[in-house]
Design a protein around this nucleic acid. Structure first.
Lengths: 110, 110
DNA sequence: TAGCTATATAGCCGAATGGATATATTCTTT
DNA sequence: AAAGAATATATCCATTCGGCTATATAGCTA
């Protein structure tokens, strides 16, 4: 589990990879489409995609000639959950809010 | 701003540094205290602390002979905010929840 | 002030990272 | 089947990273 966090945080530590992820937030895209905004070689982009995929942040599909990528929410949720443990440090009202929703509204939080 | 994210994600990609941060979530600690759980040299720990500090995740104090560290919530909030943009991918109810709080309870969300 | 304690810095080393170019692989199309 | 398109893999290179040992610095104590 620690290894997964390593891989996810490490993957996100690169601005190119975060930009790729941001692009994929708008939907499926091919490698060529993902590479387009950057002044990087195609292999460099493929490498970044491999890092993202091994971290579980994206998945590869197969469509005719191309291998479109889609975003994979689970990995992002993993680190969101990790950060949630620290949320009390900057958001005093978080715990009270959480209680309120659970008790009064019946919302469940993760 | 991108550089800040680089530094924060990169700092968090190491398990030793995440463990140090977890320890600091329980309150201020000296370098020696932080080093204790690990089988690493003291300089190695100092290096990790420097990385965390340069990422803005911790701060150094001065207390007699020692330089105690404390957690610094701002950096964690920075990446929590970054992740929040993707929350819709795994939490369908998030937007509705957000609306509900803003309208009915007057809570503000960043 | 001399020595002790706590921590930082310097320098070294091997492994990992991010980039490039060249080439291989896999479909699709003609 | 041959050519073209999309993408992956192999190498190579410079830089960064995480660890170590040795040493420096700063404050406390005798």
């Amino acid at each position: 589990m620690d290894d997964r966090l390593d891989a996810i945080f490490s993957a996100l530590s690169d601005p190119t990879r975060r930009a790729i992820l941001a692009r994929l937030a708008n939907g499926k895209a091919t490698v060529a489409e993902l590479a387009d905004p950057f002044e990087l070689s195609q292999p460099a982009i493929s490498k970044h995609l491999k890092v993202l995929e091994q971290a579980g942040l994206i998945r590869s599909g197969r469509e005719a000639n191309s291998r479109p990528r889609v975003i994979e929410p689970a990995a992002l949720k993993t680190i969101a959950d990790w950060i949630a443990d620290y949320r009390r440090f900057w958001d005093e009202s978080f715990d009270r809010l959480d209680d309120y929703l659970t008790k009064v509204q019946g919302y469940e939080n993760d």
